[in-house]
Design a protein around this nucleic acid. Structure first.
Length: 304
DNA sequence: CATAAATGGCTAT
DNA sequence: TAGCCCTTTATGG
């Protein structure tokens, strides 16, 4: 579900399935009817993600296809950008072939219109439900949106500028690092699971002020997030435990009648494991509300 | 049935 | 900090 890795994975899949396709767009629920009408019949030219935001560009169907791929984000006249934010529980389900029957609150359905020459390739479809944001943006609005997002561990950072900015800005703050990690202007794409798990793996208590963490540890956390989130994009799951720590019951095992533990039961060190023994030292995991969300930590592995 | 919770974020006060 | 929005799923009566 939707932290940054979900959106990058989604952007990749939308791009793969829909790029260059003319789409039919509809909003059966009615909340995005006007936008769907504007998208209907346009051609999808590319999809990408920044943090938890999905950005999909559409061009008029008769626009000449670009000879070369433009730089990500570059936009030309007549193009519109669909901005999607899934929020807590939004989903964007993709498939190919016959779309499923419309059911529930379907905000937007995109269906690829088969080209004359495409033969019998199954047309792609996508169903969006429950998003926090689903809107069409002008190029300037896309720019404004991205201007307030910090560096994204899932975006290429060859010169290390994103990493350096994260370390400098987080390391300058007197606020608790557990709150800072949720700020999308400091680092884009981190959510409640990656926050708790990255802090555990770094051995940092969530209440420690950003300026007390230390640049080396902050830099290490960034590098760790790059690894964890790339893995999340590949697998579609957040798994932060090392193989040797994937034992014992997890949150999902409670009340389950003796069934084998699923991947969720061993995927995390502390997230939603309050009261359960720490996978490393056995101390009960603690929890508290921080910036309106539940945080989890091991009081021994993450000393305050 | 009703209610709560969930990997989020905006606005008002 | 509180309230609100969006939707689905799990749980309780």
């Amino acid at each position: 579900m939707p932290e940054g890795h979900t959106l990058h994975r989604l952007a990749r899949n939308v791009d793969r399935r829909f790029r260059r396709a003319v789409v039919a767009a509809a909003s059966p629920q009615g909340r995005f009817a006007a936008g769907a009408q504007r998208l209907d019949g346009t051609r999808l030219v590319g999809a990408r993600a920044h943090g938890k935001h999905l950005l999909v560009r559409f061009a008029p169907p008769d626009a000449p296809p670009p000879l070369r791929r433009r730089p990500a984000g570059a936009s030309v006249d007549g193009e519109q950008t669909l901005h999607v934010h899934l929020g807590l529980y939004g989903t964007f389900v993709l498939g190919a072939g016959e779309p499923p029957p419309v059911r529930g609150a379907l905000r937007l359905r995109l269906v690829g219109v088969p080209e004359e020459a495409a033969g019998d390739e199954a047309a792609p479809w996508g169903d969006l439900r429950g998003p926090t944001a689903c809107e069409l943006l002008e190029p300037g609005e896309v720019e404004a949106l991205e201007a307030r997002l910090g560096p994204d561990p899932l975006q290429p950072d060859p010169a290390g500028a994103g990493r350096a900015a994260f370390v400098a800005r987080t390391g300058a703050s007197r606020s608790a690092v557990g709150g800072l990690l949720m700020r999308q202007d400091l680092v884009a794409g981190i959510g409640n699971v990656y926050r708790a798990e990255a802090l555990f793996r770094a051995g940092v208590h969530p209440e420690v002020p950003g300026r007390s963490v230390g640049d080396a540890v902050l830099g290490g956390m960034w590098d760790d997030l790059v690894v964890l989130m790339r893995s999340g994009v590949r697998t579609g799951r957040i798994v932060t435990t090392e193989p040797e720590h994937r034992t014992g019951p997890g949150p999902g095992a409670r009340g389950r009648a003796g069934g084998r533990a699923g991947w969720r039961d061993v995927a995390h060190y502390v997230y939603r494991r309050q009261g359960l023994p720490c996978r490393v030292c056995g101390t009960p995991v603690e929890t508290a509300v921080m910036v309106g969300r539940n945080v989890f930590w091991c009081p021994v592995c993450q000393p305050s």
